[in-house]
Design a protein around this nucleic acid. Structure first.
Length: 891
RNA sequence: GGGCAAUUAGCUCAGCUGGUUAGAGCGUUCGGUUCACAUCCGAAAGGUCACUGGUUCGAGUCCAGUAUUGCCCACCA
């Protein structure tokens, strides 16, 4: 397809994106438009992309997020900023490892059979492949990323930053190793941080088990949701305030089946009101019991293997899966009479955020980061407004988490990720070092014999450095100097804790500055039924499918349009029709303008105030207001308000009214030159306003309009971004034009209701209550003649109602259409009566209001005046309606 | 158990600091071969703004409570 202007005269047809997008994007890249110059004197505007996981390709949620970022970046590039959008991808530790393990499982392999080195090699292959696919998708979405700055979280530079941070925090005493209860995923076989565990509600049982008191014929009954953990019990606990059990404290009970003797202890942790008031203590498999265990110096018996099967401590249950063991254990308890009762019970349990397996509390040696001091500046930043979240209410969520922050378990028993930079000598001596320690760093030890920690770091331990590490930290790079802090971070709410909050802490701690000033939180994409789109449910939509079918611009503007600020958008395939239609509309109107220009060079500069008719002034005034709304909404990060303002301006004000008004009545007539210039100028401004949302179609139109080819220098990339010109704002004029619109609309409505054939023109009689209104109509009839299908216009204050005419009353005028033979009298009567009833309703309401002394006394004067004027208008219209109605009845 | 959000037309949503005859898009109905566009044009129908109180001259808009839905946080076995 060819979009040159010469072609537009003859060629019908819609906007066809697929032929144009690729070449345009290549051109942008070739010309280096998206590359940020570190030496630029322009102020910088930086966004770092939330690096997508290399587990799979991008979905609609990414498309939304990346559209938002690209819109912000492109707009600021147009505004004269050195705008840099840093792209990249995340190695996504667990997630990627899980995916690859599944892949090799299909080949009948496990990662352990494969070996660490081979497995990592395999994972790299997969990661690289997906990374390229992802970056390709970003290009297809038109993202104006600075590709020369593409980063991956496992790049050497990124890794160096991670190691540096580990050492920094260790030296500060904020990283420590501890033997604690952590969340263990038996499927991924690794520890998880608290934030990687999703709480879910389960329907299960509460088993009541009787523990015999030693040396007495009495039992203490405990309740548990996880009976198999009794194999690790080392005490039972009661409340010290509970009179029922006071006498047992200090005695022992016999653990059924295992026959272990357990002390009865008293601890405030126990709530006497709940269950039986007796709690079994499993210090190695429950965080609370762990604390109690430490207080009472209990034994810690670990009964689980890494894969969730029971270990030797479980005796005859050894080797069984925990759930299988549970079943057998309960059967045996019942058989032997230890089971008191079973109740249905709803309980919470944590599940792994990557594989959904129920996690087990598991006692193990892990690395932790102390968070409380890191949190300090991050709390202050949001409280003081240094960092602002949009919508603002997310601040509460952020602060609540931050103020109750817990230490962060950062070690993972995985292979895919940054290996922990700790080396051990044979005697257990530890060396923490960014790289493998050299001889001088481990005096007395042979560096070659040092063994590195087997574990890797939490994937978020590299992500939290993203805004600084992508810019070269820990080096004092020119990039860091120029582009840090970044401006805005755009993301969904799911990762406020996992990522956003931690980036803020890292920014302050390692770079001494907040990583960004604004956080834009958008909703989660849901399908037409409100179900979150996900790969596993198969209700996702592939952005590339939409791009192919509707075009990239349609994808982007539709997403922007459909996404309520802060709320979850519900999106289905036909959501995108809206955007496709709009893009086509823009394309069509530009074709019209170019056709009328007929090869003349377009005037894209601001029109002078001379030689403008009322409609020209009107569209210019409307443009200013649109620009104002757009800029203000952008400042408030209300992107859907932005897209709606532009959409309405383009479709309604510009296409439906302005272009139609200036269109000549007869074929072959030319458009008044002043108006054509205004139309062209406004089109140019529209292209700029839309360019961030729909970069392809706008750029193509701009090339066509300016008569340039794709090899030419013309581009919208650098704006300039439209600003408000108050000189053109004219409320009074807009009000006058609204009156013409009222007349046109009233006539159209009347004709439609009376089923007047659209082709049939009619005379128009307008009795105005004010001569200036009449003059306004008289002066501009040539502009709206075809819109209202007017043959001859008769208007004035003393116009008589033609016989056999239909009438409609609007503010300040009565409109008559002489339509002999076309009017159904009964229908017309009904119509007028309905309108009359409606007006009388309004009148009654407003009369009541104006009759209220309190209203008159308290309401501001202008409000009262306005209401008064309204009342008079109603009265006048009612009177006219009555007259017209009487006349009809008189027929 | 706490917190946050939402509740406006059949559907998805606007409605900012209280004063419009409560709006848009989609869908529906009616009518259109207007020389940019049927991916279009014109018109219409459709809402006791979840409920109950309160503040106010005036509430979709502010306050309190209730209900429903969704999300987040939390160690009750």
């Amino acid at each position: 397809m060819n979009n040159t202007p010469q072609d537009n005269n003859k060629k019908p047809g819609a906007w066809s994106p697929s032929d144009v997008e690729g070449p345009l994007y290549d051109r942008w890249i070739k010309r280096g438009y998206f590359h940020g110059d570190v030496k630029s004197t322009k102020p910088s505007y930086t966004i770092v992309i939330p690096p997508p996981n290399v587990t799979s390709i991008l979905h609609l949620g990414h498309a939304l997020n990346n559209t938002i970022q690209d819109v912000l970046i492109r707009r600021h590039r147009m505004m004269g900023f050195e705008a840099v959008w840093i792209p990249g991808a995340d190695h996504a530790g667990i997630a990627t490892q899980v995916v690859v393990e599944k892949q090799i499982a299909k080949e009948g392999l496990t990662r352990r059979e494969m070996g660490r080195e081979k497995f990592i090699e395999r994972t790299w292959e997969s990661a690289k492949k997906n990374k390229e696919l992802i970056l390709g998708q970003l290009r297809a979405m038109g993202c104006s990323c600075d590709w020369e700055r593409t980063r991956f979280t496992l790049d050497p530079g990124m890794s160096h930053a991670v190691m540096t941070v580990f050492k920094h925090l260790y030296d500060k005493g904020w990283i420590y190793r501890g033997n604690r209860i952590v969340n263990w995923c038996p499927s991924c076989q690794t520890s998880l941080s608290d934030d990687e565990v999703i709480n879910e509600i389960f329907n299960g049982n509460l088993w009541y088990i009787r523990y015999k008191v030693r040396g007495a014929d009495e039992y203490l009954t405990v309740a548990t949701t996880r009976p198999e953990t009794m194999l690790g019990d080392t005490a039972v606990a009661v409340s010290p305030k509970d009179p029922r059990y006071k006498k047992y404290v200090g005695k022992t009970v016999i653990l059924p089946i295992v026959e272990r003797e357990l002390p009865v202890i008293a601890d405030d942790y126990v709530d006497p009101e709940f269950g039986t008031g007796v709690v079994k203590m499993t210090p190695a498999h429950d965080p609370n019991d762990f604390e109690v265990g430490k207080r009472h110096d209990l034994q810690f018996i670990n009964i689980l293997n890494h894969d969730g099967t029971l270990n030797a401590n479980a005796g005859k249950f050894k080797g069984m899966d925990r759930l299988e063991a549970r079943k057998l254990l309960v059967e045996e308890l019942e058989r032997k009479g230890h089971l008191d009762k079973v109740e249905k019970y709803q309980f919470n349990a944590g599940t792994c955020y990557r594989c959904d397996t129920v996690v087990e509390p598991f006692l193990s040696e892990q690395w932790f980061v102390k968070m409380d001091q890191l949190a300090g500046p991050a709390i202050e930043a949001v409280k003081s407004g240094t960092i602002r979240l949009h919508p603002e209410y997310w601040s509460k969520t952020y602060l609540h988490w931050m103020e109750n922050i817990r230490d962060w378990c950062i070690s993972r028993q995985l292979w895919w990720g940054h290996r922990i930079p700790v080396w051990y000598a044979e005697d257990g001596t530890m060396f923490i070092s960014v790289d493998r320690p050299k001889a001088e760093q481990c005096p007395g030890y042979d560096p070659a014999k040092l063994v590195q920690d087997e574990d890797v770091l939490d994937t978020w331990f590299s992500s939290w450095l993203w805004p600084i590490s992508t810019l070269g930290w820990p080096e004092k790079s020119a990039e860091l100097e120029k582009f840090y802090p970044t401006k805005v971070l755009s993301t969904a709410s799911e990762i406020i804790f996992l990522w956003v909050a931690r980036m803020v802490m890292a920014g302050y701690e390692f770079a001494g500055k907040p990583p960004f000033s604004d956080v834009y939180i958008h909703g989660t994409v849901r399908d037409a039924n409100g179900i979150k789109m996900s790969k596993s449910l198969g209700n996702g939509i592939d952005p590339l499918e939409i791009i192919e079918k509707y075009g990239t611009d349609a994808l982007r503007i539709s997403l922007a349009h459909a996404t309520p600020d802060g709320q979850d958008p519900w999106i289905s395939r036909n959501t995108f029709e809206n955007g496709r239609n709009f893009v086509n509309k823009l394309y069509q109107v530009s074709r019209f303008v170019m056709m009328r220009l007929d090869g003349r060079p377009p005037v894209l500069t601001k029109p002078s105030q001379d030689d403008l008719v009322i409609f020209d002034r009107w569209i210019l005034s409307r443009l200013q207001k649109t620009v104002d709304t757009v800029n203000k909404s952008f400042d408030q990060y209300r992107l859907s308000a932005v897209s709606k303002a532009i959409y309405n301006f383009v479709w309604n004000d510009y296409c439906s009214w302005y272009i139609e008004l200036i269109k000549p009545d007869q074929p072959g007539q030319t458009i008044r030159e002043g108006s054509l210039n205004v139309a062209t100028y406004v089109l140019g401004e529209i292209l700029k306003l839309l360019h961030p949302f729909t970069p392809f179609v706008t750029e193509q139109i701009y090339l066509d309009l300016t008569g340039q080819t794709i090899d030419g220098p013309a581009t919208l990339t650098y704006g300039p971004w439209p600003t408000v010109d108050v000189e053109f704002i004219d409320d009074d004029l807009e009000a006058r034009l609204a009156k013409i619109q009222d007349v046109v609309t009233a006539v159209r409505s009347l004709r439609s209701e009376l089923n007047v054939p659209p082709g049939k023109k009619s005379d128009l009689h307008v009795r105005v209550s004010d001569a200036t209104f009449g003059k306004l109509l008289d002066d501009h009839i040539e502009y709206f003649r075809s819109l209202a299908r007017v043959e001859k216009l008769y208007c004035g204050v003393d116009i008589r109602k033609p016989a056999l005419s239909a009438s409609v009353v609007i503010s300040g005028a009565e409109i008559f259409l002489p339509l002999e033979g076309l009017i159904d009298l009964e229908a017309e009567k009904k119509r007028l009566q309905k309108e009359l009833a409606n007006l009388k309703d309004q009148l009654e309401k407003i009369s009541k209001k104006l009759g209220n002394a309190d209203f008159l006394a308290n309401a501001p004067g202008d409000v009262v005046d306005k209401e008064q004027a309204k009342k008079e208008d109603y009265l006048e219209r009612i009177e006219k309606l009555n007259r017209n109605l009487e006349q009809i009845i008189g027929w």
